[in-house]
Simulated assay, not measured.
Amino acid sequence: MPNILDAILGSLSTRLAARILLTFVFWSAGVAALFAFPERVAEMAHFGLQPAPLYAATTTVWLLLGSAMIILNRAAWLGAASLIVFTALTIPIAHAFWTMPQPERTAHFHVVMEHVSLVGALLAAAILCHDRKDR
């Protein structure tokens, strides 16, 4: 069994799939924004980010570029760091649960906890990509 496990976990295909899946939430949001840019602009305006078109464009590029860096394992540590910053910034901007009434407060609290876990996963990915260069 250890040989099978080593083969699966050591496989470049498995490692690539892991990077694609880890970044799915980011690159899929970036792709969606490309096809629904006016909605992305409206979202930025809703959260008080002005000029909304600039924020929409910047976040779209940020999500796609950070994801690509991790998926391709090219400066993955930088891609992970950028997505960590993005994820952390969404907490006070879009998920400030401490300012919300119930039941919205609890729902956003759980989203924040998921964001914290995602930050940990991105940090782990940066460490693993740095330790092993998959090309």
Score class of each variant (00 low, 15 high):
96 A>R: 02
70 I>S: 05
19 R>A: 04
79 G>M: 03
101 P>N: 15
130 H>P: 01
60 T>I: 02
64 L>E: 01
37 F>D: 05
5 L>W: 14
73 N>Y: 08
25 V>E: 09
88 A>N: 00
10 G>F: 10
79 G>C: 03
93 I>D: 00
21 L>W: 06
92 P>S: 05
99 T>S: 15
129 C>A: 13
129 C>Q: 13
103 P>A: 11
19 R>I: 01
128 L>G: 04
59 T>E: 05
38 P>W: 07
133 K>Y: 14
96 A>N: 04
44 M>K: 02
55 Y>W: 15
13 S>P: 04
84 I>Q: 00
88 A>G: 05
17 A>H: 13
76 A>L: 07
63 L>F: 08
46 H>P: 00
127 I>Y: 15
112 V>R: 11
29 A>S: 11
133 K>V: 12
101 P>M: 14
14 T>D: 11
65 L>I: 08
52 A>P: 07
42 A>T: 09
95 H>R: 05
79 G>V: 02
127 I>F: 14
49 L>S: 05
48 G>P: 00
34 L>V: 06
64 L>A: 06
81 A>L: 15
89 L>R: 06
79 G>E: 00
45 A>I: 11
117 S>T: 13
26 F>D: 06
100 M>N: 06
87 T>W: 10
59 T>P: 02
24 F>G: 05
83 L>E: 04
56 A>E: 03
68 A>H: 00
101 P>G: 15
56 A>P: 02
42 A>N: 13
59 T>K: 01
108 H>T: 13
96 A>G: 06
111 V>Y: 11
37 F>Q: 08
59 T>G: 05
97 F>N: 00
134 D>Q: 00
40 R>F: 13
31 V>E: 00
80 A>R: 04
70 I>D: 01
88 A>H: 00
56 A>R: 02
31 V>L: 14
1 M>Q: 12
49 L>D: 07
114 E>W: 06
75 A>C: 04
17 A>Y: 14
29 A>C: 03
21 L>K: 03
120 G>P: 08
58 T>H: 12
43 E>R: 02
117 S>L: 15
132 R>L: 14
26 F>E: 09
117 S>N: 12
27 W>I: 09
32 A>Y: 07
95 H>C: 05
43 E>Y: 04
63 L>T: 02
37 F>I: 12
117 S>A: 15
73 N>H: 12
31 V>K: 02
122 L>T: 10
96 A>E: 05
52 A>S: 14
30 G>N: 00
10 G>I: 10
3 N>T: 10
87 T>G: 08
72 L>R: 14
